[in-house]
Design a protein around this nucleic acid. Structure first.
Lengths: 246, 246
DNA sequence: CGACGTATTGACTCGGCTCAAAACCTGTGG
DNA sequence: CCACAGGTTTTGAGCCGAGTCAATACGTCG
């Protein structure tokens, strides 16, 4: 008795993933239809570059599962990690309305499934459909707010505080007291994401253990008391916890 | 149509300033009209807060002349300067499509004239007019790119390089060799804008004099050779000079 | 078990911050 | 014209956080 092969039934699967993304929420099905038609689903191996900085932005992307990183390479050979994204996240969409050139590269961190959608479709859909336009604007505006926060964090918070902030954003919103969570990806990568070196990350995590009642066991982190961590972390920030961004 | 009487400024003045802003470029006059109707022009003194972080975003703003700063206050009483803007710049428009709350405060750095426009109008105009929507999206996307650059700079460049980058962006695009320019506002403020302390700014400027062939006389800066400054500044960045961002 | 990638630890350097003082401007009133 | 007051900018000394380089521990997979 053959069991289901899940990679098939592409159209329905795509539909689910695409339409439930906020960009398409409340959008009529005839606006949605061409996206479903044109969508291509891909599964690629770790390390694959989906695109690099400077490429023409002919597609934008939606992650189904797995992890990718957005990055920029500097002239002297360093790499800045712009963002790390997973299921449900959209990327590459911003360049479409700017200069049509990706401002960063995108690389898979592990085997990852994603959907690619044509930029041209997004452009026309946004131009012709009000709801799409408003959704797109909202996505952009939220991104801008996130980026503002990021800039503030880099300016105002030190390494342990940036990690604390990162951990707090991993917590479910409503909990109080103690929380156990595990880090979504490599510590090295988290470090890069937070704009610090792995060694600094390691030491900063150690000071959190000492000063903010945190326990760490490999990738598992136990926050003894959320409020304590907030007190330690959020003073140099302009947002009161819980921050509504992410 | 109703002809409203504005007590201080005739209709035409506003029209010039508003319609030449990129947000309204190519927009039909009947879409533009309600903005011109509803626009209010203001002139206020240095120090005045136009709004503060957390206010409801009922207006967005266009600067006619003068200077303003956008800033965020942290819980422990520090201030992060988000941006410094002057004639032709737009601000407060992002919150409208996000959560309707300003993410920063805005304060005048000197006597400044500005126009305030109702958020509600922007929202409806963007929802009903394709060109407005595309313009707004473009404004947003460009802002996002700028912010990305800012994050990269904070991460990768040291103080002298950040100043060098700032100076290079003040240069006219096509010049080569030597350039004379003067700083648009206080060194203290530039320092804050670049995420450093005034003392650091001063010292960093001194090292630029030494290492990158710069001369400084008060607010006047003479770049001996642009290429030399580029070589000194741009290595840790992912953009090749001239950066197309602002 | 060995081997490789990831994570931690140690010793050192250096950049930027702090606090404090001096130098420089610029406008004001005598 | 000078003296003074206020703000801005510079300079100095000392400290601390984060980066670097190098070595060691840890884990997981073969």
């Amino acid at each position: 008795m053959p069991h289901t092969i899940k990679k098939q039934r592409p159209f329905m699967d795509l539909s689910r993933y695409i339409s439930k993304n906020h960009l398409f929420s409340g959008v009529s099905s005839d606006v949605l239809a061409p996206f479903l038609e044109a969508a291509q689903i891909r599964r690629e191996e770790k390390g694959k570059f989906i695109f690099i900085q400077g490429d023409k932005a002919e597609w934008f992307y939606l992650i189904i599962d797995g992890w990718i990183k957005l990055f920029r390479d500097t002239i002297d050979g360093n790499e800045a990690v712009v963002d790390v994204l997973t299921a449900g996240h959209l990327f590459g969409e911003s360049a479409i309305f700017d200069n049509g050139i990706y401002g960063y590269g995108a690389q898979l961190l592990e085997p990852t499934q994603y959907i690619m959608l044509p930029s041209s479709l997004l452009k026309t859909a946004v131009a012709s459909d009000q709801k799409m336009a408003m959704n797109m604007l909202q996505v952009m505006a939220q991104h801008r707010r996130q980026q503002s926060m990021e800039i503030e964090h880099l300016n105002m918070q030190n390494a342990p505080q940036r990690i604390g902030c990162f951990l707090l954003r991993l917590c479910p919103v409503d909990v109080k007291g103690s929380v156990t969570l595990h880090l979504p990806y490599d510590k090295t990568l988290i470090a890069a994401r937070l704009g610090m070196k792995p060694e600094t990350f390691s030491r900063a995590l150690a000071t959190l253990k000492k000063d903010a009642n945190i326990r760490v066991q490999g990738a598992m982190v136990i926050i003894g008391n959320i409020q304590e961590l907030v007190d330690y972390t959020c003073n140099h920030c302009s947002n009161k916890f819980p921050c509504d961004d992410l």
